[in-house]
Design a protein around this nucleic acid. Structure first.
Length: 434
RNA sequence: UCCCCAGUAGCUCAGUUGGUUAGAGCAUUCGACUGUUAAUCGAAGGGUCGUAGGUUCAAGUCCUACCUGGGGAGCCA
């Protein structure tokens, strides 16, 4: 290797005609007697490199035969435009250094594999172009989330991951915690978010969430990331306006900045372009009537099942809010609906194309006596909720918030079948490694 | 926890009403090829058919149990 500059593959067009060094991994090789090709990936892109026997020192030509899939290399040569090369750019090799050899049994091949095999090899699967596209879009969405709230004056608050039993009733991961008994991995940061909203006004959380549910579906993970805004003085209607502005902002951001990655995933972007405010608003009772008309056995009082959600969403090209569920179907902290005390002021947001619930939100019960009654009625341990009740004793306030499931949102925007492709190392009931 | 489905080569799969020596593609190894695009062409190696029983002259194939995984329900984001 000479002193030629080290260049990332994405930057090669700016170095046309120059001698450069690239570093990366061999994705595949082709040999045709006295001319040979190695395709190199470096995370910013891929580039074909060309080895010509008659123009290379013998040892460089012979070293080519040591290149197996995923060998890491440094390659020096001339960067040049070449219409025959994929992407229109290539490197005419003058020197090759093998950094790390790769045995011939590298498991992932350029062909179809089953999801289970790929997840066993997730540490390698991430190297594929498709997985890179997903990771890039996820990262773009995460950045857009922070930008959205920053632009609107929200404070980001980080809530605890180790908690006493609090929040939702579904499965908890427990661990010993010194002399305090069991600690549980957080299922939500919401209750802490409410305390923060009383302190700071507009806040959001962005953190991991844990559910020990034995769910085996393409929509569930045991560890996922959730974004939970909480806004003082927002009622349920304002809460939904915030939600639709938020979701539309995320979709628009990906359309604007990550078109190549959407194309890599062969995403039908017309479906995303249709995601405009206002979203559809259906009262729970209307939703029940719709699914009954379509043959569902659901009656007033039931929670809506996955099939019901699909029936509702089928009629629309944009997300749908289903509002004001029966009290019994929802969590204790949701505010009783003054217009119909059988229901609470809440909403789910159902993504189009059958992706299901990406948001659950509500106005929070701010009446001390009613909240206490709900906690008691559900048999929750009162001592764990004293501080939460204090928020209603000392300057109670109208407030509302919601939780957006990051992986479900990314899976929908990417158009993926499996939520587990959306996170680098998914955690599921039967998968703790890699 | 419940319902449905699957398990055959490193990977993806085929294997007929049970029938004699277990099939393909890809991958790997060797050979040919000076512009390949998941290169192509020729040859070779590669198997406890998930496990354990059972039925039968004969089981990858049929039956039972178990194991492992997938999809869905429930629960939720």
């Amino acid at each position: 290797m000479s002193s030629a500059p080290f260049v990332r593959i994405a930057e090669l067009p700016a170095h046309a005609g120059q001698q450069v060094v690239i570093r990366g991994w061999v994705t595949h090789v082709r040999s045709s007697g006295k001319i040979a090709f190695a395709v190199i990936r470096d995370g910013t892109g891929t580039c074909q490199t060309v080895f010509v026997k008659t123009q290379l020192p013998t040892e460089v030509w012979e070293r080519f035969s040591q290149l197996t899939t995923e060998t890491s290399v440094a390659i020096e040569g001339e960067a040049r435009a070449e219409p025959r090369a994929p992407g229109g750019f290539e490197i005419g090799v003058t020197s090759l250094a093998i950094i790390g050899p790769s045995p011939i049994d590298y498991p992932i091949q350029p062909k179809e594999h089953g999801i289970d095999f790929l997840l066993d090899n997730r540490h390698f699967w991430l190297r594929s172009p498709r997985q890179r596209a997903i990771a890039v879009i996820r990262s773009e969405i995460e950045q857009a989330i922070h930008d959205f709230f920053y632009e609107r004056g929200f404070l980001r608050v980080d809530t605890p991951i180790l908690t006493a039993a609090i929040g939702e009733r579904s499965g908890l991961f427990a661990t010993e915690y010194f002399d305090e008994g069991n600690a549980y991995l957080a299922q939500t940061g919401q209750l802490y978010g409410e305390a923060a909203a009383a302190a700071f006004g507009k806040i959001y959380t962005f953190g991991p969430t844990f559910r020990a549910e034995k769910s085996k579906t393409r929509r569930h993970l045991t560890e996922f990331w959730m974004i939970e805004p909480e806004v003082a003085w927002n009622d349920s209607a304002a809460n939904m306006v915030l939600q639709e502005d938020f979701v539309a902002y995320l979709v628009q951001r990906v359309l604007e900045r990550r078109a190549p990655e959407l194309a890599e995933l062969e995403r039908d972007v017309t479906k995303l372009q249709a995601v405009k405010v206002p979203f559809v608003r259906l009262d729970y009772a209307e939703a029940v009537a719709i699914v009954q008309r379509k043959g569902s056995a659901t009656v007033w009082g039931d929670d809506l099942g996955a099939e019901d959600e699909a029936l509702i969403v089928a009629d629309y090209d944009r997300p749908v809010f289903v509002m004001n569920y029966p009290k019994e179907a929802k969590a204790f902290y949701m505010k009783e609906n003054p217009d119909d005390p059988r229901t609470v002021l809440c909403n789910d947001c159902l993504a189009p194309e059958g992706y299901g619930e990406i948001i659950g939100g509500s106005q929070r019960e701010d009446d001390y006596d009613k909240l206490l009654a709900r906690i008691t009625a559900e048999g929750l341990p009162l001592d764990a909720y004293n501080w939460y009740l204090d928020l209603r004793r000392y300057g109670t306030f109208t407030h509302a918030g919601f939780g957006l499931g990051l992986e479900r949102t990314v899976a929908w925007i990417c158009g993926l079948q499996h939520i587990r492709e959306v996170i680098a190392f998914p955690r599921m009931m039967h998968r703790l490694r890699p």
